[in-house]
Nucleic acid binder design. Sequence first.
DNA 1: TATTGTTATACTCTATAACTATA
DNA 2: TATAGTTATAGAGTATAACAATA
Lengths: 172, 172
Amino acid sequence: MNDLTGKRKPGAERKTSRTASQPAKNDRAEDIRLGILADYIGFHLRMAQDASFRAFAHHAGMRDLKPGRFAAMTVISNNPGVTQAELGRAIARDKSSVTPLIQELEGRGLVERQRSPVDRRSIALSLTAAGEETLARLTAHAVEHDRKLDEIVGDQKAEFINLLKKVADALA
Amino acid sequence: MNDLTGKRKPGAERKTSRTASQPAKNDRAEDIRLGILADYIGFHLRMAQDASFRAFAHHAGMRDLKPGRFAAMTVISNNPGVTQAELGRAIARDKSSVTPLIQELEGRGLVERQRSPVDRRSIALSLTAAGEETLARLTAHAVEHDRKLDEIVGDQKAEFINLLKKVADALA
DNA sequence: TATTGTTATACTCTATAACTATA
DNA sequence: TATAGTTATAGAGTATAACAATA
């Protein structure tokens, strides 16, 4: 089912004829053999995530977006009062990575922080009105972006997401 | 089909009871709502890729592995004489990112570079004997790692990879 | 003019470790 | 002892731009 053997002939010179258009667009093919990589889930996972990330960033003009911010804000919006530690676990990031992220959002007036009266070590997060507005705008962008992905996967979306979740959970 | 509305009650204090075990393990759940994220292909793509990457790196002991090196070496092995530009396109990386990667591999005696007699701008890449040996060893690790993924996706592997490829290609 | 490869540079993301304040 | 959050720091990965050589 997999081509692990066939190697390209060394002597065969191939002139590159594809236009570069953009930095590292998915311009592969040329006739490059991926070998065992072709059957590698991990490899394709990386290629797909990479393409998705670039498209997302590009689509939003790279202005205020950034997938990480969007995810964090969505979680906060849906879980007002969530702590930084909880947020970190939800998006699989260390707490030391969450700190600067929240600081940026707070600095931009999108997130509010409030010491929990119950456990004074932790900080309850919530979006400001401006934060909710911004999130709504970002969501509109994101929805449009994901629509492309939806078209691509079609009616297999639920199945696709389910597989992705299983991978993430199983390897956790 | 998706819960875009339900927000957690702000007042509800939740004590964190999960062990941290490791940095950012997939310890989510707690009862955090992902909102629109739950239906987002891009988000799950990132979570799955992230988990896969960590597991891969961890499994190989982080010694000499690194997914990027493995992918590059596999491509070179399967395409002796491939140029750096072609390699970059195959793995979706800019040529300026390929240079240091190849330099490292060459420095470790795993890759050989040879000016193409046909097009003297480009450099033909190939693995040394030591490179092939190393690749074989890495492949053994990688195969074992991907086996876990195989178990997870089961008989839907072909379909899964196909979807990932479509995503990568369509967004290129 | 366009492409290959190199270099210099800078940016983003992330983690580790050490620290404090709480629990 | 363990957890929440901060800070300092470092590493990995990547891209942009400019350049020389070649096409």
